[in-house]
């Protein structure tokens, strides 16, 4: 298994109350799977995605990625996983506001190793062009529409060609047409052999995936196969 979790829990101690965002998630995701995660707002989808993306650590439970226990990884190894193995599309994009799209998309390349600045710029602009942002290279995130930001965030997630793409509501901020465009990109990535996990509230979007997990109140409520993308 590419990903396997056992009894993942995450709780936040807010002084007076304790918030349980995840209450024991056990699941497995195989390499090359196309998985949709659904569930009501506040059910813990983003929290789960962050943990899967090695961006956050669970309060308890085990997460094994590619055969190694993530909790046991050094911070350097974690950084390498985030940089090379996993592309993460945040629900709120998380682009850096003060720099233009090229610089934003170049960021994973900056931390990738010894790539020259010209190579980074070239690679980032190619990725942006592939996502239809060739005319926005020098724009800053706040000069873009929501759909453009969404695509920039995807471009950044993909620029290092990771084998796993984790996308938190990649179509949540988009109109139907743009949403379909994004989904066709994800479909393409999946058919190219990547493992794609996305969070969505939209059943039509979830239908693109070949498996859907429903999360409710921090636990898996349903796990069903869709019988492949349409």
């Amino acid at each position: 298994m590419l990903i396997s979790t056992r009894d993942l829990r995450k709780s936040y101690d807010l002084g007076s109350v304790e918030v349980h965002a995840l209450r024991g998630i056990t699941m497995e995701i195989g390499a090359g799977e196309y998985l949709a995660i659904m569930g009501p707002s506040g059910s813990g989808k983003s929290t789960l995605m962050h943990i899967l993306g090695c961006l956050d650590s669970p309060s308890s439970g085990s997460y094994v990625l590619n055969g190694s226990e993530v909790a046991g990884l050094q911070s350097r190894e974690l950084a390498r996983v985030r940089n090379k193995q996993i592309g993460f599309v945040f629900q709120n994009f998380n682009l850096l506001p003060r720099i233009d799209l090229i610089s934003n998309v170049s960021l994973p390349l900056v931390y990738h190793g010894s790539m020259s600045k010209t190579d980074r710029t070239r690679k980032a602009s190619e990725q942006l062009e592939r996502l239809g942002l060739g005319h926005r290279l020098k724009h800053r995130p706040n000069e873009l529409s929501g759909g453009e930001r969404q695509r920039a965030a995807i471009a950044r997630a993909l620029v290092n060609e990771p084998s796993i793409l984790l996308a938190d509501e990649p179509t949540g901020n988009l109109d139907q047409k743009t949403g379909r465009e994004i989904m066709s990109i994800l479909d393409e990535l999946h058919s190219g052999g990547r493992t794609v996990v996305l969070v969505t509230h939209d059943a039509n979007v979830a239908d693109h995936a070949n498996r859907t997990i429903r999360i409710e109140d921090g636990a898996v409520a349903e796990d069903k196969s869709n019988g492949g993308p349409r």
Partner: peptide
Amino acid sequence: LREIGIRKAVGAEDRA
């Protein structure tokens, strides 16, 4: 902190 989080999320090592 947000910028630091973002940089680390895309693979910045601690020392970077």
